[in-house]
Design a protein around this nucleic acid. Structure first.
Lengths: 255, 255
DNA sequence: AGCCTGTCTTGAACGTGTTCAAAACTCTTT
DNA sequence: AAAGAGTTTTGAACACGTTCAAGACAGGCT
């Protein structure tokens, strides 16, 4: 409990752990996720089946480890570009492109990434409280993109932007997974077009005239961000939930 | 091969099939998806394990059957409202609310619905060619909403709108799955707010002044809609895919 | 040296989704 | 009736993810 550095000298455990992960990723890359069995991974890494489970509580956890690792690769690949460029649009563009090229070797396998990300209990899920470190870290990168840029953005939007961009980037990845065009041209094109669109939207949203609309939209986003959270009861509990719509502040009919 | 009506008289097969589905849904509702075993379903339906697989090739297929069934319930629940109301916003609002209330009994279990929907090979996946009848039918409902409304909408937008609304409605469901507020108040509130937003956007997009922006956006949507499709090669194959961005027609800088 | 308390490793077992060859059934035709 | 051609049903077997009790392997302590 008190003594810390004991295994630190050799770190046998850590070594086996990475050996297992390494083997797993390699096999995932070649045979795909479903085709790769835990037994095969264990054998490939030269350990027993039970031992693999000692380090990774489930097969799914290997995916998270994968996501974490590629995330770190991405961050370091992104480092120099973020240091030089200060234009928000250019930063975003570069970061997204690098994300795709980082994931490149795993295109075949990456499908499962989303199958698990959509799972309500997965930490990669866009909703539910963002307690998980993986997601936090991932969102932080987009915070850096925003913070480090010269573009001036209203405080409220600036606060929500990292999360929004993260969701956007997840969408790009989802597209890429299905993109079977040569060299994933369509994905890169989509990035070009949407980054342009997004940066325009940010510009628009920063316009003082847009303030009321922006505030309205941001309230919505904040509301959506963590559904799993508290059970806010700001209304009388007597309510069918299916017939209270025609009252609303801050709204004037348009259509 | 030539004779058609043989089993039609008794339809023994069909009966067992629905019996199995019925049992499955009931069990899913009570014990959840993972907790419910195929063996339990078979036993509950009074058939052998192998027989259950004769009618449903996989456990996942039961989810699709579930989706299909609730979709039909939803359609019929929606029928009268769509006949009476002609305002687009009101139509959309009602249809979404009814969707949630139709799914209501399956809130606990519905999580897996999305776990599979995100799977690249699932027919519920928003991308990949929409060859599947389930999704087609589902989108058709939104087409009815649009077609049957008095609101005037530009043709190009009108064409893409059903798909867009379908994706939007999937988002609402995803939110609802995570919504643990009493009576799913937050979901109904989200519907109110977003429907308002969406209908305004449609109004905006129908404004002649917005034509260029709308066209641009719609091109993007059409491009996204079916990624799995053709491998369009409209460029020279010599390209790294990571450095062609600063050329673009139909765009004037804004920010 | 011998214990002791942790970490690490093993192999067998369990439960579950899925497959399949063979049996049972049903209706039509001879 | 009997034979034949579907269709439906069965039960056993397989593969895989996961669990767990037990053992092996470290140090550090007396």
């Amino acid at each position: 409990m008190h003594r810390v550095g004991r295994k630190v000298a050799t770190d046998k455990g850590g070594q086996t752990k990475t050996r297992i992960l390494e083997t797993a990723l390699e096999m995932f890359q070649q045979r795909g996720y479903e085709q790769t069995t835990m037994r095969a991974i264990a054998e490939g890494a030269g350990v027993s089946l039970g031992n693999a489970y000692y380090y990774f509580h489930s097969k799914e956890q290997l995916i998270q480890a994968f996501y974490h690792r590629t995330h770190e690769e991405h961050v370091s690949a992104t480092h120099s570009a973020l240091a030089e460029e200060s234009d928000l649009k250019a930063r975003l563009l570069e970061v997204l492109r690098l994300k795709i090229s980082t994931l490149e070797p795993y295109h075949e396998f990456a499908g499962v990434l989303f199958k698990t990300a959509a799972d309500p209990h997965s930490p990669l899920n866009p909703f539910s409280e963002e307690s998980d470190p993986v997601r936090q870290e991932s969102i932080q990168l987009f915070q850096q993109i925003v913070e480090g840029s010269k573009t001036s953005i209203p405080a409220d939007l600036k606060a929500e932007l990292p999360y929004l961009l993260w969701v956007y980037h997840m969408g790009i990845i989802l597209f890429w997974i299905h993109d079977s065009s040569p060299k994933h041209k369509r994905t890169y094109r989509l990035i070009d077009h949407t980054v342009d669109l997004v940066s325009r939207l940010i510009g628009l949203g920063s316009n003082p005239l847009m303030s009321p609309l922006r505030k309205r939209a941001l309230r919505l986003v904040a509301d959506v961000r963590d559904v799993a959270g508290e059970d806010l009861i700001d209304d009388e509990p007597e309510d069918e939930g299916v017939e209270a719509a025609e009252e609303d502040a801050t709204s004037e009919p348009t259509a």
